[in-house]
Design a protein around this nucleic acid. Sequence first.
DNA 1: TGCTGGCACTCGCACGCACTGAGTGCCAAG
DNA 2: CTTGGCACTCAGTGCGTGCGAGTGCCAGCA
Lengths: 338, 338
Amino acid sequence: MLSERRLEVLRAIVQDYVGTEEPVGSKALTERHRLGVSPATVRNDMAALEDEGYIAQPHTSAGRIPTDKGYRLFVDRLAGVKPLTAPERRAIQNFLDGAVDLDDVVGRTVRLLAQLTRQVAVVQYPSLTRSTVRHVELLAMAPARVMLVLITDTGRVEQRMIDCPAPFGETSLADLRARLNSRVAGRRFTDVPQLVQDLPEAFETEDRGTVATVLSTLLETLVEETEERLMIGGTANLTRFAHDFPLTIRPVLEALEEQVVLLKLLGEAKDSGMTVRIGHENAHEGLNSTSVVSVGYGSGGEAVAKLGVVGPTRMDYPGTMGAVRAVARYVGQILAES
Amino acid sequence: MLSERRLEVLRAIVQDYVGTEEPVGSKALTERHRLGVSPATVRNDMAALEDEGYIAQPHTSAGRIPTDKGYRLFVDRLAGVKPLTAPERRAIQNFLDGAVDLDDVVGRTVRLLAQLTRQVAVVQYPSLTRSTVRHVELLAMAPARVMLVLITDTGRVEQRMIDCPAPFGETSLADLRARLNSRVAGRRFTDVPQLVQDLPEAFETEDRGTVATVLSTLLETLVEETEERLMIGGTANLTRFAHDFPLTIRPVLEALEEQVVLLKLLGEAKDSGMTVRIGHENAHEGLNSTSVVSVGYGSGGEAVAKLGVVGPTRMDYPGTMGAVRAVARYVGQILAES
DNA sequence: TGCTGGCACTCGCACGCACTGAGTGCCAAG
DNA sequence: CTTGGCACTCAGTGCGTGCGAGTGCCAGCA
């Protein structure tokens, strides 16, 4: 059990280390913080904190730096979420309000987050699985060729070209379009399969093959595109921790390029509320020296996707968390309006 | 005027420097290349080459490295384009053949290029301005709300939501859709404006406002989306030149994030044939220590977009040019098939 | 029991210095 | 025009030294 003062010492160490990026010693601590005790006392506390594994020294005659466990305690018990300033909020709103379509919203969000946190930003596109269908369109491109266009409530559009087993008349196509939309429009993606199950039966025998093909393509699209997309930005910020270069950033850049890795990362985060994963808490090895702050966002009360930032474990957690939360809220609003 | 042998010396210097990444001296040159002359002679040649500005020495007692001007000469007169090996060609084909849609094609291309060249790959989406319209679709989302979907011959899809000034009936909508498509389907984007100019006149007065709104949105989309999109990959390869870190890669990463910069960069390249821009030939300051190899690609004989790689000036030009050209060809084929 | 000042100790780091060797420019001879 | 020889330059390396930040421990005091 750690005394109140020792927690205070840990907090001071984290804050100083985040600020200076250098190991912090007992003397510097007493000078920069009003702890009300002498360096010697702080040394004792630091020894205790080190025994407990919250801090460590890089080498014998150096100050201490927080361990992953230390950051964890800091985030959980010692730090709040720092709200943004009014000008920052206004800037966010203005910047996001200019977006013209979904791509633009996501693009702006990623730039905004990267700029605010000065770290790498990751924004997931609104997920199809948690979205609802706004409209399904079928376009005859040729006698036996149909284009399927799928539009979600968040404005995302997916299209597929379908080669039909037999020519398909314009009236049949219109019929299918109407039946399809009346069943699935406004419904959740996950519900679609059973909603269209018996649709072929409503058609003439000669058209059933085509209807089945269209439906299976639709279902495929739902499944395949569950493979989410995401956008990243601010990688140039990685160069800010130029110390342990390039050993550190190489694996991080590689991890960022593997969208699968990132998606898994975001997937592991809680669906609601903010998630902070520190250092080795991240399953992916390349990200062992980074922390990931993520949060879900959505147009209504419910989260349809996640966004967050990836930065060094030595990051300004309160500020980062504040920025991430604020951006998520505004993006949610924008999506709800559009 | 440079003698044949001096050119040969320059070629040897470039090759060795690209291979070893270290300044190359006269002795090492005569050992690694069969120049048939002594180091002393080579020294004289090197002095001449330095006078002409083709090579330079980082400091007095070091070997020489090529200057931008030296690389330029090398690319223009001393190096060919190294064709890929048969297995490489097969690998490309196999990899690209698996693509399901345009996003996938571009994504795979970028990964492929990054892998083949071990550098940063940039692929521009097929440009709208040089594309033709495959289909324009209008969907009634609400009585006075229409979604415009624009589909290009390269499979790219853009959509816009339109708030109409007045309710618009389903029959009017179908009418507009039919007229619109009969005029613009198969035509070039640049021709669209004049093709639809007099379209409102064909409608009842009460609908003209809406028709005009739809048309102006369509034209806006054409213009706005002329702002091209692109995808980049392989940024982790930047860490391979870990020497002049991070001074070098910081500005490069920043430039890569600014799509505008990249688009301008690609835009400055020739429309046909391969373009190599070396070091300071790149207008953007952050890319002064990199070279850009780019080439147009397209589904037919004509280029609809460009792709290329960004790497250190000290790169394997023949190999890189070979990979870029080959990939561009295969992507063109894939696009033509789909 | 807990805090404090004092003190000896550790060790990374910056600095100075000499040495080494790759590479050069110049020159006289072939 | 080429070549071998030669003196010169200078970045990089390894070593020894001093400095100082920081520590751990201990005895004294509240």
